[in-house]
Amino acid sequence: MSILVDKTTRVLVQGITGREGSFHTQQMLAYGTNVVAGVTPGKGGQSVHDVPVFDTVAEAMGKTEPNAAMIFVPPRFAADAILEAAEGGIELVICLTEGIPVNDMVLVRRYLDIRGTKLIGPNTPGIISPGKAKLGLMAGYIHREGSVGVMSRSGTLTYEAVNQLSQRGIGQSTCVGIGGDPIIGLSFIDLLALFEEDEQTEAVVLIGEIGGNAEEQAARYIADEFTKPVVSFIAGRTAPPGRRMGHAGAIVTGGTGTAAAKIAALSEAGVTVVESPAQIGSAIASVI
C-alpha cells in the first residue's frame, strides 16, 4: 500500500512559477504524480506545464481539491506558505525549502499540531512511493517498487541507500526525507508507526545523523513497538563537536547528539547498525 502518498494523492505546488517549482512540477508529472494545481500570488490564471495556477490556496482548494501541498518558496516566505496550506485544509504539507528560521518553525509546528496537518520537512528532498507518486526532488529512476521503507534526515545519502537497494533488486515501499532542520514535522517515530501498519513494507532503513535525539527516541520506539527488521546508518561519526555540519540540525553540542550515543541506542534496540554507508544495501538483503 505504501505510506502517506500514492496514486490518489492530489498535489498542489506552492511557488509553481519559480525556477525550482516549475522544473520539479514537470519532473513529477513525468513520473506520474497527479499535480492538480499551483499557487503563486499574482500569477493566478496562468498555467505551468498545463497545471492551472491560482493566486491563493483557498482558491485552488475550491476548484481542484488537492490533499497534499508542496512548498517551493524561498526561506523568508516559506513559513507563511506552510500556514496558508494548513489553514486551507491541506492534510499533508511537504516543505522542501532550506534555511527557514527556527523561530518561525516553532510557531508553524504549533499551528499544524492544532490543525492536525501533517508536515514533511522542511529542508527535505520530499517523499516518493515508487511506481505510484513522487512528491520531491529525488531522481525517480533510481527507485523501484518494493517492500523496504526508507527514512532519512538527509537527501543525497538517501539516494545512495536507495540506489544500493535497487541495484540488488530490492524495491522500496515509500522513501521519506524527514528534513535536516532542528524543528521538523513527521519524525522517525511517526513514520515507523505508519510503516508498521503498512502491509507492503517488510523492513525499514533508518538513516540518521549527528545532532538532536530523534534516533534515540526512534530506538526506544523500535524496542517497544516495532516488529519489522530495521537497518540503520548514522552519519557524522567523525564530525567535530560544536560545528554545524551543513544541516542546521546536524550539530553536536555539549556532548549530546553524538553518533556514538545514537549507534548504541539503536544497537540495543535490536537494529542492525552498519559502520559504513557502503553496507546499507547488503545489510537489508541479509534481514529480508
Partner: peptide, 21 residues
Amino acid sequence: VNGAGLAMATMDLIKLAGAAP
C-alpha cells in the same frame, strides 16, 4: 560532496579506510 548527509558519510568512509578527512 553534494549534500550534507552524504558529505558526513563520506568523512566516515575515509576514516574507516584508515585515513582522515
